[in-house]
Simulated assay, not measured.
Amino acid sequence: MTLAMNQALPPSEELVTIAAIRRPRGLRGEVVAISLSDYPERFAAGLSVWLRPARGAARPAVIERAWFHKNNVILKFVGLNHINDVEPLTGCQVCVPLSARVTPPPDEFFYDDLIGCQVELMSGEGVGTVVDFAPYGGGVLVVERVHPDGQRQEHLVPFVRAICPDVDVTAKRIRIAPPEGLFD
């Protein structure tokens, strides 16, 4: 059986983080990680991933096994069989190529797909650009508006269907029907 350990990431491929490694677990090469995915199947045995340190290049790895324990995911990678092999992984992100990302169900979106979307009123008038997403309540878009004089202003727009009825992340556009006074 050939493992994906020697696969190179295409230079144009973006990585998406699915977990963050916190620390080694035991002596047999397991690590404790925080799952950043809503999809537990992302950690299936045999999945090729990239381990990206805070500094330096990402390196390929293959998940040998994974299970959830106390709000964490325990990961064991193929070929890393001792604590000395995984201690340097503390702080690494476990990533997959953007092309391997799970497709969310209809009317659900990934935070990073919302960033950069142009926000406009239902009439087509531009409001600004989504620069962040805050997970307060159901979620809040942080929209930056640049005025003609160059002054920047941030607005918080609740990310709910009543206010954001038309979301098209492919076109990078969100059309909103804000309640009166939202931009005052």
Score class of each variant (00 low, 15 high):
H147L: 13
A177F: 10
L141Q: 11
E154L: 08
I163Q: 04
R55V: 12
G124A: 10
G138V: 02
N81E: 10
T2I: 15
V94N: 14
R28L: 10
F110R: 08
K172I: 13
V131N: 03
S37T: 11
I115Y: 11
L182V: 07
V102F: 11
V140P: 08
E180W: 14
R152K: 12
V131S: 04
P60Y: 09
K76V: 07
D166Q: 08
V73C: 07
R55A: 15
A100W: 14
S12G: 06
D149C: 05
L80C: 10
R23E: 15
A100C: 12
A33Q: 03
V94F: 12
I163G: 03
E30V: 07
F68I: 01
I63F: 14
A134E: 14
V127E: 15
P10M: 01
E87A: 09
A8E: 14
T17Q: 10
A177W: 09
N84Y: 14
I163L: 13
N71Q: 13
T103E: 15
L9P: 04
L156S: 01
I63M: 12
T90N: 06
F68H: 11
A66M: 02
C164P: 02
V32D: 02
G181S: 04
H155E: 11
A54I: 12
P104C: 11
A134V: 12
L89E: 00
P10D: 11
N71R: 12
T17F: 02
A177K: 07
P179E: 15
L182H: 09
V16I: 10
V32T: 01
N81L: 00
E30T: 04
I21M: 14
V49K: 04
N81P: 05
P24F: 08
K76R: 01
S48T: 02
I18Y: 01
V127P: 14
G116T: 04
A33F: 03
V16E: 12
Q93I: 05
A45V: 07
A58Q: 03
A4G: 08
L3T: 07
V62M: 13
Y111A: 15
I74D: 08
N71E: 15
A134R: 14
E14W: 04
N81D: 07
A20N: 14
